[in-house]
Simulated scan of single mutants.
Amino acid sequence: MSWLTRLFGNGRRRLLASAAAVLLLASVGTLALGFAVQHHPPQPPASAALPATGVPEPASPSSTPPTTAASPTTVPTTPTPTPQPPASPAATPTAISIPEIGVHHSLIQLGQSSDGSIQTPPLTDPSVPGWYRYSPAPGQVGPAVIVGHIDGTTGAEGVFYNLGALRPGDTVDVTRSDNTVAVFRIDGVEKYAKSSFPTLTVYGNTTNPQLRLITCAGPFENQHYQDDIVVYATLTGTHSD
């Protein structure tokens, strides 16, 4: 069962939760807003994108979000991924390190806002990244989700300002509460319009431990950035802190 299914359930319950699901999955839409000056962070080139063969499998049909006006294309479903053995209790992430862009910071835990969307770190301190605690913990099977701002209300650059400068082969270290470090290798860096955010590709269930780093990007209009940058990474190993 994917983490999306666990979160929203099936059948009538899932239909009742559809509005919250859309807000949660369409994209992390408020990662930067409320300030006057738009920064221009690095953007991923086509050469940094995921290879076609490396695109993650979408989630099982039970996790498919509803089609909306903001996401009019119906996403085809695929067979359920191979079942995994029961996971041991997860060690929660406490810090993230991305040497290539100078990120070394503790992590906060994020839940859901009252409207069902993913909470975001405080805009008053855009240097703080957060792990979405309803996604898998880094190192568990599935896509662990960490979000951060590119800037904030103070005008300072955010923790993920340079996320678009990452390239395949770069690494991300996530320190966990059991004093181990999960090491991820970046597979690709993509930029998506929020209006056509590929929900299943980003958040869908996977058969191995993966990581998603997400921030806003693109033009700043109507108090929102119009795009998102998503970094895809795969666990390559763990070691003691």
Rank of each mutant, 00 (worst) to 15 (best):
M1T: 11
A20D: 13
S2C: 14
P168N: 01
W3M: 10
L25Q: 12
F184S: 00
H104C: 07
S177Q: 03
S60A: 14
T94K: 10
G155Y: 03
P41M: 06
G188P: 03
T74H: 12
K191L: 10
Q43P: 05
P76L: 11
Y192I: 06
L123A: 13
S47I: 11
P121K: 02
M1S: 15
R176P: 04
V174A: 00
P138C: 11
F197K: 01
A90T: 10
C216P: 11
G142T: 08
V55Q: 00
V174I: 15
G204K: 01
I108V: 15
F8I: 04
V174N: 01
S135A: 13
G148V: 05
F184D: 00
P86S: 14
L110K: 04
G164P: 00
G169E: 01
L7K: 12
T153G: 02
G188M: 01
T67K: 09
R185L: 06
T30D: 09
P83S: 05
I150M: 14
P168R: 01
A156Y: 06
I146N: 03
R176Y: 00
T207F: 04
G130V: 05
Q140W: 02
A46F: 12
T234S: 14
I186D: 00
V75T: 15
P66M: 05
P45A: 03
Y134M: 12
T206F: 01
Y134P: 06
N208T: 10
T234M: 00
T201N: 04
P85E: 03
P168D: 02
G130C: 10
P51M: 00
Q210W: 07
A46E: 15
A165H: 01
N205S: 11
A19G: 08
S240Y: 13
V189A: 03
Q223R: 11
Q119M: 06
S113N: 15
L4P: 06
I214H: 07
T80F: 13
D241A: 13
D187F: 01
A46D: 15
G130P: 09
F8S: 11
Q43G: 07
Y192L: 07
T5A: 10
G237R: 00
S117W: 00
G169P: 04
Q43I: 15
A17G: 14
R13T: 11
P136N: 00
Q140A: 11
S88Y: 04
S62C: 07
L33T: 15
L107P: 10
S135P: 10
T175K: 13
S71H: 14
V202I: 11
R12Y: 05
G102N: 06
V103F: 08
V22P: 02
G152I: 05
